[in-house]
Design a protein around this nucleic acid. Structure first.
Lengths: 335, 335
DNA sequence: TTGTAGGCGTTATCAG
DNA sequence: CTGATAACGCCTACAA
């Protein structure tokens, strides 16, 4: 591992000069020495040591990305948006997969602080307790932006309007003549599903559709949870003709349960999802769902995070993306 | 940001003592000073600086993970296996998503070298040119292990037997009475699909089934590629009753194309995939495929990588996992 | 049991 | 244009 010291010796100059050249600050170096240094650096297969650089310069080029479940295609796509943009702008991602475990999330935040991460992007699940630790980022002067996760007093958020998305979804179901409508969402603690639940409730109210509390289920954002709750609903004596789901995975589970009971989607029961994961169009029936600009959420968040890192001004502290209805074939019209 | 220096002052001891205590080396420190130091550290909200620590100790706790496409559920699951195990053993992941771009992969390897990563896990696509850069890891004394990607002269590999997997898949198709069998695989350069292609060819030979070169297509590992090639096959005048696919995503694309042509799976054309991504069981029809122990691949690779990092001995340099046939409903029996 | 001091590889400030 | 030199925060002999 050649260092600038090695280069300086070989080139008969001081390390200061080497450092300048290697950092592209040619202004005050003669062309000749510049060339010589560059040549020697190449010969020695020199690589800057980012640890040393980070120590000295207070800037590491590391961006922490906290996701609850990289296995969920939604977060995978979001991560790709983050990674692409970060890479383009010269930053590297530290992946922190929390498995929706608050404790793990907290310890990851500690780790990011210890690595002197330049900034952090946080998505996903939230328990009340998080706030303390996120506050820590603030204490250590590490800028961060939240994706789709409102927390009191947090400055920078990029969100999609979940209330609106769920509203649109529910509205679509209602306009197709459904009146007995179930809702299967994600964790009750998170604002995320609550927003979606809110949107659902709002639409129901606005259209004067009766809300049956027995038809509202809150589980997790996984296929299994959707499956389980749908099954319970089907096996209970409540009747309904449609299910609004908190995300696509839940919808997959619900569809699986429905089929397993010998019923058909959408003939017997309509299902609408949320996220528009890439496989949703391939399901049978193709899933009607709410599309989020997932990749863009990640890319945009990264963009403003890097602005914050560079102390550039960010106009919109809260950026709200708009979800869209994607009509496919999992909802049938009753009218 | 409190440092050990701050602590040493506050506790009236030297930084050496503080360092010892903070690193759990209590052997040569009085219980009393130990307690005092720990207490003060907590009061000052002390966090070790991993950059400084890495610089001084030559060990960063960073593991680089190179994947071609985190959006592919196969790699997402693999990444989860890596992340879980790494986290458990006290390491942090740097995520390097190459987008199957050799150039990007190379530059990520440089980055990992520059961060003094303790080790690297490499999966996915391969072009001949990679070898040079991977060699660089070796030059810089950074241990690495490859997952499912044989490269000449590379020591540590964890693989699944792709030839065998494809063989089993093809054999299953043949035993179900198919004789006109197509193959749609991934990039020609990679050993990965080549192995799978080899397995396919081998099975065809062993069972005396005629191989029609026109029915063999090599694209990429994406849904779109499967779709495109299946469509071409369907629109050509060649006839066939089954398609062996290089992975599940290709199979999804193929199924989409088949349906779009007004044909049915498996009644008109049987399809078999590879990977057993978690949604494959939810497709219509549920996809018959080859299951890999994906999560375990990642976890195991991480385990041996960390052994290498710690200079512990690793017995099996090449670990071969065995793929399994998962029979669902996308293949029909013609006999 | 505790302290001193040198070094890890860079950056950055000042002189020359 | 170029060079000393002091940080950055921590580790680790080696002394005391």
């Amino acid at each position: 591992m050649a260092t600038i010291k090695d280069i300086s010796k070989a080139a008969n100059v001081s390390i200061a000069t080497v450092s300048k050249v290697l950092n592209g600050d040619y202004s005050k170096v003669s062309l000749e020495t510049k060339k010589r240094i560059l040549k020697i650096a190449k010969e020695l297969n020199y690589r800057p040591n980012r640890l040393a650089r980070g120590l000295a310069s207070k800037s590491t080029g590391i961006i922490g990305l906290i996701v609850p479940d990289i296995t969920n295609p939604y977060y995978a796509e979001l991560a790709q948006g983050v990674e692409n943009k970060a890479d383009k702008l010269g930053y590297t991602i530290m992946l922190c997969n929390t498995g929706e475990d608050t404790h793990k999330e907290n310890s990851y935040i500690d780790v990011l602080i210890e690595y002197n991460a330049d900034g952090v992007i946080i998505t996903g699940n939230e328990k009340a307790s998080d706030i303390d630790n996120i506050q820590n980022l603030h204490n250590f002067n590490i800028p961060f932006v939240l994706i789709d996760r409102m927390i009191p007093n947090v400055e920078y958020n990029v969100m999609v309007d979940n209330i609106r998305g769920a509203y649109i979804a529910t509205e679509y179901i209602i306009k197709n003549g459904h009146r007995k409508i179930a809702f299967i969402g994600g964790e009750a603690m998170a604002p995320h599903p609550m927003n979606r639940l809110q949107g659902f409730l709002q639409a129901m109210k606005d259209y004067g559709v009766e809300i049956d509390q027995n038809l509202i289920r809150i589980g997790t954002y996984h296929v299994e949870s959707g499956y389980k709750h749908a099954l319970e609903l089907l096996e209970s004596d409540s009747d309904f003709t449609a299910i609004v789901c908190g995300n696509d995975l839940i919808a997959y589970g619900a569809i699986k349960a429905i089929k397993q009971q010998g019923l058909k989607v959408p003939e017997d029961i309509s299902v609408i999802g949320y996220d528009d994961i890439f496989i949703s169009s391939l399901l049978e029936p193709p899933l009607t769902t709410i599309k989020q600009p997932t990749y863009d959420l990640g890319a945009y968040a990264t963009e403003i995070l890097i602005k914050l890192i560079k102390n550039e001004s960010v106009e919109e502290k809260v950026k709200l993306f708009v979800p869209q209805l994607v009509v496919r074939k999992s909802v049938i019209s009753l009218s």
